[in-house]
Design a protein around this nucleic acid. Structure first.
Lengths: 356, 356
DNA sequence: CCGTCTAAAGAGACCGGTCTCACAACATAT
DNA sequence: ATATGTTGTGAGACCGGTCTCTTTAGACGG
């Protein structure tokens, strides 16, 4: 009774050709929309195709044309609003140009990233957008370039790799946020990131294998230095990977003999965790401690107080990355560029003014 | 200077075979991991493959095996936390079984959904997970079935279509939430959804072409009826598609001669918009009006008051859908089932108790 | 020493498209 | 009339794998 009894060999051009009583080549010309065919034969073929419910096998098409019409995207974590917004931007750019998107999650793990890249290359994607988990391990990306597959890095740049990158202007963003805090009278500022905190014996900066975070920390540090504040790295903390760890990080920061009066959260997930940590400690924002988060996530505008944020135009970043990649796919010779999308500070209510 | 000068014809089994001085068939056996090959030759081939940096062309592989190892997912909007969580669940299930995921956005538009489905079928995905934008237009999905491609519907069921569906237990969820509100003394309850409000001359229920929303509204209505409350559809409103429209919907609801005392938001995006609407109207939750939202979105736990929600286990739903699809792909004969993932009410602070 | 059996390797068809080339039919030029 | 050009169609190679079938070589028995 099931029509799935016959595993239903798909209808091919040859089938259509036979039904329309023309050669396979002719049917293919009509169906593929290339070459020249008379109007009469065209109609015959189209009618036959409709009757048989012909659907072209894109796989076979890709095989002979060498183009798959797919762009591969490797992100850290789709569940993160940052990436889902970016993916949306990429998808929109792709759709506009007739490309499709295949997404792989790396979970910010190098091994997963490598295998995802390998797999996408295997699928013969026309191009690749990658958020590199680490900026210090580039073999697999080097291989992408050697394979001749267009590559655009997203959110994080790797100067040693000759590949386009689309990032936010992280250094500048951190500077603007930090200067703002200093301008509001803060003198002890902390920077909190979710980066894995593993490297033993390395300085904080050396441990940051993620260019976006590093640039921000550098901007943060340079602003503190510029303001003549001592020991700028003292309050830079990594490892806010989940709520539990964040609680620990925050508790330790605030039990310092001279605790920071303001916290800068490296992304909206960290920001949310910090917010919850502070709340569970019974601390009031901004009276007890001020904070600024990156990314205009949903939650930041509905808290009390609403959170002052660094607005990263992530959708635009994604769209730009998509467009750049497609440009590279369609007309190859382009100079390698690092595109920076500017950010802006959105002042809301989470920063107190400290009077001396 | 550029190595991209040579468009770098990819390395094939034939190349590896030549380098290893064996036949193409033998090299393919080693590289494809099938058949029998002596240890010595195996080593030769592997060495040659490594030297040439051979990467199999999955496209060609899929062509001959008939399996692509890809499952296609068509969602309404990846930017929506509901879908990105679901996609995460699907991806995890897929990865575990060695499948990859290709994602397409329908923007909840039927035309986009159709073309996405067609395209994925063209790519010869091994199976399809679709969130149907409308439950009353099923030609394209019927075609998926006729093409013999396994299909699982997500979030919304279509009984007329013989296809598996994974949804939340929407009816029950609405009943639990509604009864809770009634139990807290509320007598005038509103239900607000983001569904497009287009159909002229139809009753509200007829206009809801989305089974999840319809089930919820039905549950909502039946609970009101059960409690003996009059005119249960009076406060059911569609069209909260963006902030502006939501502001309008809320304003109109609350200027009713007998305004509702509690609002039920159909999803977390609507919930957030309602929250903002109420705030901009200067109304206090829950003193002036109570609300419950679907989905445990980030923002719901950090507002003041935190929002009472219906917890949909979306990740589990996604994972279940993925697993179900894969089961169907790998061992076809399975009865069609509608799997419901139970939900639960998480009571927080957005519902007031009304004493009479 | 020959025949048989089996393991390992090679030859080549096939998947479903694209695309080059050959060829037929007819129009136009000489 | 033949030479040349144009247009539409057919035949078949090709993409890079898989996989079936055939062939070769070595092991073993009698």
């Amino acid at each position: 009774m099931e029509d799935s009894a016959h595993p239903k060999r798909a209808v091919t051009v040859a089938d259509v050709a036979k039904a329309a009583k023309v050669s396979k080549a002719t049917a293919a010309r009509v169906l593929g929309g290339y070459g020249v065919v008379s109007a009469k034969i065209t109609d015959q073929v189209i009618a036959a195709a409709a009757a048989l419910e012909y659907r072209p096998n894109e796989l076979a098409r890709s095989m002979s044309t060498g183009r798959s019409g797919i762009i591969g995207v490797v992100v850290g974590d789709i569940e993160n609003a940052f990436f889902s917004l970016a993916v949306r931007g990429i998808s929109d750019a792709a759709r506009l140009a007739g490309f499709n998107v295949i997404i792989a999650n790396s979970g910010e793990e190098l091994a997963a990233e490598k295998s995802a890249v390998d797999l996408l290359i295997g699928k013969r994607v026309d191009g690749l957008i990658v958020t590199p988990a680490r900026c210090d391990s580039i073999d697999h990306l080097q291989h992408v370039r050697r394979a001749g597959v267009p590559l655009v890095l997203f959110d994080r740049a790797i100067p040693e790799l000759e590949a386009d990158a689309v990032t936010g202007d992280d250094r500048d963003a951190a500077i603007v946020a930090t200067r703002y805090l200093i301008g509001q009278g803060h003198r002890r500022l902390a920077y909190v990131s979710a980066m894995d905190d593993e490297g033993g014996g390395l300085t904080v900066l050396e441990r940051i294998s993620n260019s976006a975070v590093r640039e921000r920390v550098e901007g943060f540090v340079s602003s503190l230095t510029e303001a003549g504040l001592p020991n700028p790295l003292h309050y830079v903390r990594l490892g806010a990977t989940d709520q539990h760890h964040t609680d620990g990080v925050i508790k330790r920061l605030l039990s310092d003999s001279a605790p920071p009066t303001a916290l800068l959260a490296s992304d909206s997930l960290v920001g949310l965790r910090i917010f919850k940590s502070l709340r569970s400690l019974g601390l009031s924002i901004p009276n007890d401690v001020s904070m600024i988060s990156f990314l205009d996530a949903d939650w930041t505008s509905v808290t009390v107080p609403p959170i002052t944020i660094v607005n990263q135009r992530v959708y635009e970043m994604g769209k730009l990355a998509g467009e750049r990649l497609i440009a590279r796919i369609e007309r190859a010779p382009l100079a390698v560029e690092h595109l920076r999308v500017s950010t802006s500070l959105v002042v809301r209510g989470s920063v107190a003014t400290i009077s001396r």
